[in-house]
Design a binder for these strands. Structure first.
Lengths: 340, 340
DNA sequence: TATCCTCGCGATAACGTTATCTCGAAGATG
DNA sequence: CATCTTCGAGATAACGTTATCGCGAGGATA
């Protein structure tokens, strides 16, 4: 006898497989077979079960399935900010979706404690794997999780204190490209403003810039300004660079936030008179003035590679940790071609 | 005897509560009590259990807990595009986090089938509730889920075919504000380009614009252009509006994507000569030229309200569906103050 | 001193699925 | 016609946790 979904005696509760089995007059196991498209089920049994499923509005409980099978079919992504433009996250989602996996995205908000909270929570959920854009400066607390078999891949930066797969852009080559591009357009005093050297990418990019200066026999003093990305700090760095004894004629910005802070502080007029190459693409680049020449990261490659590294680790937990460096490309749009 | 995490006889498997109980020499239930901070556990027992937990690197399995307790502590958000700027999603995450809930975000990518897939998957996961930015034009397939007690809140638009809580901006007032602002600055031929009238917000905004024209005794013919937001369609609408017999001197754009398409087609020069008020804020608004006067939505209020509506429904599944209209505000930045 | 609580812990049964095993009924083979 | 295989379905035991119940020890009360 069919029983409508809403009215099972006061308590609203979803029907389970046993309910469906009772309704269809078959064994529990048979319902499970039908739900999982097991071919070894007779057509009339299948039909009876299907009918019972629609009659009761049965929906399998994914949690129970996950508990029993051990796999969640979900990968976690702990990114710095959800709700902001993040092309790598889009690539992760597409790649994951293409193989039938669900993405659980969370935002660390640049907060180390929050990052830890999220990662531990993801481990407790026994996700199939985790991709993280690291914030914290020490991830040693993740070692037991890795040892316990939790696949972990970092994106954009490696994690300190543990050995894990990592995919990131070629920071050194990108900064080198930026410098050479400005140099080729006649600039001789080129300055760098970027992220703090406490973070890995900040260290790599500042070091690459110093190396580029050195390779051209230019002294570095007064030209390299890594540090926190705040409007005040960036403004101070700009003042130092542009209003000193020997003002710089060109600028390399080390992160997207640096670029935006620079543009906001200078305004379009002053910025247009400067040679500028920005590391990392800027949203709405075609609508911003001056039109920015950027070192573009292959964000979709990065996201896809992160998922692939994760899958490789899931398939073989014993494989050695691997670091993939993704090339970058220069996109000329004008700001880098301003003559000295 | 303590057993290190990695080497339990070939198969790498995480320890469970029974392992901890055996290690600590207590009952399974006691471990559960310690994990859940149950105060009715003696200090020396608690210490023994804690020691066993760190010795084995035990991490509770959230899936089993969820299955047993019935609640997941997770709310789902099916937004149009993850990985793009989406302030409402940020507000949802903060609000959810503040009350200890996890956010499972997924991207519908403006695809109706994908939306359905995501929502059904979320229902199968028995999330505590779902917030959706609807895409599809008919959500009747969700009726059984709602009847089964799945809390569902729509954001930005109502869902057709079912009755559910909804939070959205005051479209009519926003369009009215935009029109009046331009009218006050002397514009008499004001055009509208916006989203298709097949979607709810597109209908509301186009209707509000026609009403505004009517209220000022202006005819609507040739001035109201709802439709798909593609570069081609927007370009055609712009041509019709600006190069006709009586060219419009001002423009109201109905969505962010419309605004961007308009700016891209006109270029900064031509756009600056036009009065423009855009519905919805634009990312990096301070760096774009012309500086856009916009009707800004209170995205954080919308996100917060969505979570609150969801919680209210979880608390009382029988309450009548409620629609919350969030006010909008005009932000003048220049483009709306261009004289006719 | 006997009785009644209270407190702290342990045994055991769920939660809703899938996996292993068993078993009866067919059809194939000698 | 007897036996062997195959096939499809059912009973039952997990998965790892929490909730219900029970039970023994200890302090308070008459």
């Amino acid at each position: 006898m069919s029983r409508p979904a809403g009215g099972n005696g006061g308590r609203s509760k979803r029907p389970t497989m046993v309910d469906v089995a009772r309704e269809a007059g078959v064994a529990l196991r048979t319902v499970s077979r039908v739900v999982n498209n097991d071919p070894t089920v007779g057509p009339e049994y299948a039909a009876r079960v299907e009918a019972a499923i629609v009659a009761l509005n049965y929906r399998p409980d994914e949690r129970a399935r996950q508990l029993r099978t051990g796999v969640t079919g979900t990968i976690g992504a702990a990114v710095r900010r959800i709700a902001e433009v993040n092309p790598a996250l889009a690539a992760i989602e597409h790649t994951a979706r293409a193989s039938g996996q669900t993405l659980l995205a969370a935002s660390t908000d640049f907060d180390e404690a929050r990052e830890r909270e999220i990662l531990v929570s993801m481990c407790r959920q026994r996700l199939d794997g985790i991709i993280v854009e690291p914030i914290g400066e020490n991830h040693a607390y993740l070692e037991p999780e890795i040892e316990a078999g939790m696949p972990l891949v970092s994106m954009d930066r490696p994690m300190a204190g543990i050995s894990a797969d990592c995919v990131m852009s070629d920071n050194a080559a990108g900064i080198g490209m930026a410098f050479h591009h400005l140099y080729r357009h006649g600039h001789r005093r080129i300055a760098y403003i970027g992220d703090s050297e406490r973070v890995y990418s900040g260290r790599e990019r500042a070091a690459a810039f110093r190396a580029a200066l050195g390779a051209h026999g230019r002294p570095a003093e007064g030209l390299v300004h890594p540090g926190e990305i705040t409007p005040e700090r960036v403004a101070a760095a700009l003042e130092a660079v542009l209003h000193g004894a020997e003002p710089a004629t060109a600028l390399v910005t080390g992160t997207m936030d640096t670029t935006l802070a620079v543009l906001r502080h200078l305004g379009p007029q002053a910025a247009s008179r400067l040679g500028i190459v920005a590391f990392d693409e800027v949203p709405l680049a075609d609508l911003i003035r001056p039109a920015l020449t950027v070192v573009a990261q292959e964000t979709s490659t990065i996201g896809r590679t992160a998922v692939e590294l994760l899958r490789a680790r899931i398939a073989d937990p014993a494989r050695p940790a691997q670091t993939v460096i993704v090339p970058v490309t220069l996109k000329t749009r004008g700001s880098g071609e301003v003559p000295a």
